[in-house]
Simulated assay, not measured.
Amino acid sequence: MIYQSLDEEFKSKIKKRQLKKIILKYKGHSHELFNQLELNDSIRYIYLSKDNNWGVAITIHKSTTKILGLLLLPLNKEQEQFFTDFNYFMPIDREWKVVWGGDTLITNYHSNIPAQKYAYDLLIEKENKTYLNDGTINEDYFAFEQTIVAPRSGVIVDVRNSVKDNQPGMMNENQVTGNYVIIRHGEQEYSLIAHFMHNSILVTPGQSVKSGDILGKCGNSGHSSEPHIHFQVMNTPLLSEDCLSKKIKFENLKDPIIGDVVPGQSEY
């Protein structure tokens, strides 16, 4: 029954016997709804087992009710977490929504990549939509060209400003971060904000910035299918094999996760 509920693209990528094996390996039973995220044509539901050890994420197309995505897994929460030394704001000046964020793969697809483990993806939505019109151009999206600001005082150490913005629905696999800014905040503590709009970044390496200073505009460059920003703090200025993402301590938030609306710095 579940297999027949998959949309055709999903069904073409997995055989029924493969799905059966995955479901039989899953040990969670009694579940409760933990969170949900409704955006554009889909709703993502996240369920956690009552013992909080297992989770299910299912994405459903609103009009067809077909399953677009399905994830079943143990949560495997870490006992020790690698926290930032300093407190930060989100790099925004108005309300945005968290579309990926949290400590486990069920809420944050970055979490199985050590260099991005605690990263956030943010966008702007209005009445569960991220765009006006038909969403075929970047200008249709509420996040496009919105102001991006420094999450904390520091010194700019690296900038890329020359990557063209993608057409919505397309992604640049060769330049994953697209246009970005990296800021040094202290010893082994650097923030990365990625997917800026082409030629919108206003800061240069060596420049000092304060929390809330304008860095540039949100774009759709790099590994991005629609205008949004990627924000993380890490222990090196490079996304290398030695890079480790740090769990961000916020000045004004406590553990934001997928589906949360987070305020901009102008509100503080």
Rank of each mutant, 00 (worst) to 15 (best):
H223S: 01
E189N: 05
M197F: 09
H198C: 12
R184Q: 14
S30Q: 06
K126Q: 14
P168D: 03
T65W: 02
G206K: 06
Q188R: 15
T147K: 15
S211Q: 10
Y45P: 08
F89S: 06
K27L: 09
E251A: 11
T65C: 04
L123E: 11
S63F: 03
I67C: 13
K20W: 10
P205V: 05
Q232K: 05
L48N: 05
G264K: 00
E189G: 04
I148T: 13
I182S: 08
K11I: 00
T59S: 15
K129V: 07
F231H: 12
Q116F: 00
C218M: 13
V157E: 11
N112H: 01
I92M: 02
V233I: 12
Y268K: 11
D255S: 13
W100H: 15
H195S: 14
N174M: 14
I2Q: 13
Q188N: 15
S225E: 00
Y131R: 01
I106M: 15
P237K: 01
I183V: 09
T107V: 15
L48M: 02
N138W: 08
S224E: 07
A57D: 09
L123R: 04
G222L: 02
I46E: 10
W96T: 09
L48F: 13
A115Y: 02
N252M: 03
D213N: 06
L19A: 04
Y26N: 05
S191F: 03
L238F: 03
E251C: 06
W96G: 02
L71V: 15
Y180P: 02
I58M: 09
C243Q: 14
K117S: 00
L68K: 10
P237M: 03
N35E: 15
Y109F: 06
A119M: 00
L39W: 06
D260L: 07
E241I: 05
N252D: 11
W54L: 03
I23R: 10
Q4I: 01
T84E: 09
N174I: 06
P227N: 11
I67S: 14
S221D: 06
D134Q: 08
E145K: 13
Y190G: 08
K164H: 10
H185K: 00
Q36Y: 13
K210G: 06
A115M: 07
D121L: 01
T107L: 10
F34N: 04
V155T: 11
S200V: 14
E8A: 06
S30I: 13
S266H: 10
K11D: 04
D140P: 01
Q175H: 14
F231M: 08
S111K: 00
